[in-house]
Write a protein that binds this DNA or RNA. Structure first.
Lengths: 199, 199
DNA sequence: GTCCTAATGACAATCTTTTGACAACTATCT
DNA sequence: AGATAGTTGTCAAAAGATTGTCATTAGGAC
C-alpha cells in the first residue's frame, strides 16, 4: 500500500508497475485527481483507477469516467462498498495477469489451471498453497526468493505465519517433486537468503 | 527506539529524520493519532506510519489511511503480526532502492538477483554476506571504503562485529575472485583507510 | 465427528560469522 | 638505516544462526 497526499507525488507512485489499483481523490493539492488520471492514461498506464469525490455532481463522475477511471464513488461511502468495488474490479482484471498456466521440466508437469501435477505421468497430490508456491517459484526461475518475500507474495499482506512455515512447505514440496528430496535439484536452498528454483 | 506518551511530544520526535517507522495510537492525550499523522504528511514527512486502534469501527481505519497512514492494526494484536507488518513495510520500501542487479569485469560475472558468481565461467561459492559486500564495493567503484563504513552499510546499525571481521571477509573474497590473492587487482588495501574496489 | 491442510515448535545437522593469535607489513621518528 | 607502534594478511577454531526434519497442534471442510 502506497500513499501520496498530493498529486505530484501520487503520479510518481502510480507509475510503479507493481501497483494493482489506484484510489484517487478528485480533490488533491498539487494536481487534481482528474489530471492525474488522464496523464496516466496518456502514458499508457492501465492500472485500475477508482475515483473518489465528495461533490456528488454527476459532471464529475462523467468526466472521471471519460478521462479513463474504471469506477467512481461519492463520499461518504461505506467500507463494505469500497471493498466490494475493489474486489469486483480486481477480479475482472486478475484474469488478464494470472501468470503461467502450465509448465513442464524433467519428468514433471504442472497445470495450474486444472491444479494438476504429474511426475513420470503419475499424479501428485499437492495442496492449493503448494501449487501457488510452485507457481511463484517457476515464474521467478533462478531468482533467490526470501522467506519474507514469499510470505508476502504467496500468503498475502494480512496473514503472518512464521518463516518456518515456508521451510516446511519447501520440505513438503521437495518430497513430492524431487527424485532425492535430501539432494534437491529444483528447489535449492540459498543459506541465509531463501530458496531458488531451477528447472 | 523513541517513545512518547502524548501527541505533542510524539509529533516533535516524529520529525527526527532518522526515524524509520512510527507506531501511532489513535487515542492519545494531547493530540490524537490522526491529527499527528496528517500534520506529518502536510509537512512532507513520509516516514512509514502504522496506526493502532482499539475501536474496530471501519471508519477509523479508513480515515487513518486517507490521512496518510501506511497500515493499521486493531488492538489486540500479536507481537508477531506487528513485527511482520513492520518488516513487510520496511522491505517494500527497501525494494525500491535495491541497486545493481548484475556486473561483469575481467573473467568475473556477478548476478545479485540470482546470487550467482562466475569466474572463467566456473561457479564461485559465495555466502550471502560476501555477495552483499561485493555489491557494495562495485556500487562504489574506486572509492576508499573504511571498515566502519562497511560495517554500517553492509552489516547494519544493530550489529557490532570488530573491524577485523571486515578484513577476514576481504581475505576470503580475494581468495575466490582474485587470480593471485596475495597480489589483489580488484580489492585493494588502502593502508590505514580501508579498501577500494577496481574493475 | 473424521479428514485434510496449515502452522508451529523442538531438536539435530549444517553452514556462516566472528574472533583471536601470530606473522608480515607500513609508516614514522630518531 | 634501525627501531617502534600500529595495521593488515593469514589461518583455524569457537560461537552463533540457519535449515532439515519430524511430530504435534489448531482450524476448517465435509
Amino acid at each position: 500500500m502506497l500513499l501520496a497526499s498530493d498529486g505530484i507525488d501520487g503520479l510518481k507512485q502510480a507509475k510503479n508497475p507493481s501497483v494493482d489499483l489506484i484510489l484517487l481523490d478528485i480533490m488533491l493539492p498539487g494536481k487534481d485527481g482528474m489530471e492525474i488520471c488522464s496523464e496516466l492514461r496518456k502514458e499508457g498506464i492501465n492500472t485500475l483507477v477508482i475515483m473518489l469525490t465528495s461533490k456528488s455532481e454527476e459532471i464529475d463522475k462523467v468526466l472521471g469516467l471519460e478521462i479513463g477511471a474504471d469506477d467512481y464513488m461519492t463520499k461518504p461511502f461505506s467500507i463494505r462498498e469500497l471493498k466490494a468495488r475493489i474486489k469486483a474490479l480486481l477480479r475482472r482484471t486478475q484474469d488478464l495477469k494470472k501468470g503461467i498456466e502450465e509448465s513442464s521440466f524433467g519428468d514433471l508437469h504442472f497445470d495450474f489451471k486444472k491444479q494438476e501435477a504429474l511426475k513420470k505421468k503419475n499424479p501428485l497430490k499437492l495442496s492449493a498453497k503448494e501449487f501457488q508456491i510452485i507457481k511463484f517459484f517457476i515464474e521467478h526461475e533462478g531468482e533467490v526468493l526470501g522467506r519474507d518475500k514469499l510470505l508476502d507474495e504467496v500468503w498475502g499482506y494480512d496473514v503472518f505465519p512464521t518463516t518456518r512455515t515456508v521451510d516446511n512447505y519447501i520440505l513438503s514440496i521437495r518430497k513430492k517433486i524431487e527424485d532425492d528430496p535430501s539432494e534437491p535439484k529444483h528447489l535449492i536452498t540459498v543459506h541465509t537468503s531463501g530458496y531458488k528454483f531451477l528447472k
